[in-house]
Amino acid sequence: MVIKDILRRAEGLQKRIIFPEGSDKRIIKAAKLTAENNTIIPILVGDERIIGQKANELGVKLDNFEIIEPSTSSKLEQYVSLYSELSKIPERTSKQIIQQSIFYSAMALKSSYADGMIGGLVYTSGDFIAVCNGVIGLRKEIKVPSSFFIMEIPSHEGGENGFLLYADASVNPNPTAEELADIAISTGHSAKMLLGWEPRVAMLSFSTKGSADHPDVTKVVDAVKLAHKKAKDMKIGGEFQADTALVLSTAKRKIKADDIGDVAGRANILIFPDLDAGNIAYKLTQILAKANAYGPILQGFAKPLSDLSRGATVEDIVGVIAIVSVIADRWDA
């Protein structure tokens, strides 16, 4: 349901989305489907001959596509020079590196030739994130990339009409307090940009407002303080146990009335203290609450982009294209 809404909102946006794995048939099909309703203007990067051959096999006409072969691109020298300056790698070797689709695409996104980038069918998530981090960089004041899941929970009436965002459930195994604060802020921004929500971010722990004393609790308490300092206007609360974050009557029992704030019992974003907790929670929610989980969606980068799982279907890719297009459209909002 949430994906249907995002697909509808993405129609007509005409975002220039660049695909480093342009010769993959799933990419060509998904790009065609989303170009037809004007969600995107696809930019496929790769060997022109192979892309043409694959499109032909699929019966796809590439009339409204832009195809770029890095080695013959008119932008090659410009990107080589920019990359050399950024990486401090001399131009002779930068030229060899930039001819690789993923580096070329990242440079095209960095220099705003494209509005967004989607890749990861061939590259591992770790490699894809490393290139995006190294070339495109992170949003101002954000020091770590992360990811979130959109959870659609039929039996839950709270959150945002039954929806919650969970983070981080796939990138950072054991974030520091500073990284946890960044994950909270990034997820708040993502909720605003993608879903138009007013974020109410709960930083989760096994303790509520000092009910337990442990270094793991201190980490979350410190993260809440840092997040407040960095994002003064964002509603961020904690440290909370999950029931305190989600159930108002429980929050009222556990927290003094003058300290309850806007987040306790009303959270629409849950920030887990580490990857164990985040990953276990999203899978348990899926199985026990029959929830739909959409993601992981990358966040924290200086430009709109997303990773794909290597087993992604055309339908999955269409969903990710819509998500990146909507985020790209609201990027400056």
Binding site: S87, I89, T93, Q96, I97, Q99, Q100, I102, F103, Y123, G126, D127, A130, V131, N133, G134
Partner: peptide, 16 residues
């Protein structure tokens, strides 16, 4: 070597 160095090394080796 960090991840990005390894990926850059692979890219440069493949193209060279």
């Amino acid at each position: 070597a960090k991840s990005i160095d390894t990926i850059a090394l692979i890219a440069a080796t493949e193209n060279t």
